[in-house]
């Protein structure tokens, strides 16, 4: 990424060639259901829909049909201690339409991790449940040691 501003086009030569514009694109998971051929990106605020299109076409050789962009308002949050309000930055979202026969599924990186976690939680729950049952059993006979049973 360059630290230079993307220059406004001026007629005539020499042109100011910018090789490293402030352009980045981040694939994000759509918040609402979309047709399978639409991909959502969070892009740099300076990018126009034409920039998004050439970025994908020229660098990644993607068959882009249409690009729509919008700017989403950043969330605001109240500070828990002092009560002042902070706001996250606005983001530009680009909805890229691919040809209708293409379909894009957002990759699921964390399914294994989630499974593992679920397993762990399950065993923890089981032991908790066992302890609760043990307490229940001994509720009506206070003072008796735990190993004492009929």
């Amino acid at each position: 990424m360059s630290t230079r501003w993307y220059p406004i086009y001026q007629r005539g030569n020499p042109q100011l060639r910018v090789f490293l514009p402030n352009f980045w694109m981040k694939l994000i998971r759509p918040t609402e259901e979309q047709p399978p051929n639409v991909v959502t990106f969070s892009v740099s605020m300076e990018m126009t829909k034409y920039d998004v299109r050439s970025y994908l076409e020229k660098i990644y050789k993607l068959p882009v049909v249409d690009v729509r962009t919008r700017i989403a308002l950043g969330e605001t949050k109240k500070d828990q201690t002092y009560g002042y309000i902070t706001k996250k930055d606005d983001v530009k979202l680009a909805y890229v339409t691919l040809p209708r026969e293409e379909s894009f599924v957002f990759p699921d990186f964390f399914s294994e991790k989630a499974e593992k976690q679920a397993k762990e939680e399950k065993s923890l729950d089981e032991s908790k449940e066992g302890f609760r049952r043990f307490l229940d059993r001994n509720k009506k006979r206070p003072g008796t040691p735990g190993w004492f049973s009929i």
Partner: peptide
């Protein structure tokens, strides 16, 4: 077309 029409433009 079950999705929101805005997803199409």
């Amino acid at each position: 077309f079950k999705h929101d029409p805005r997803t199409l433009g």
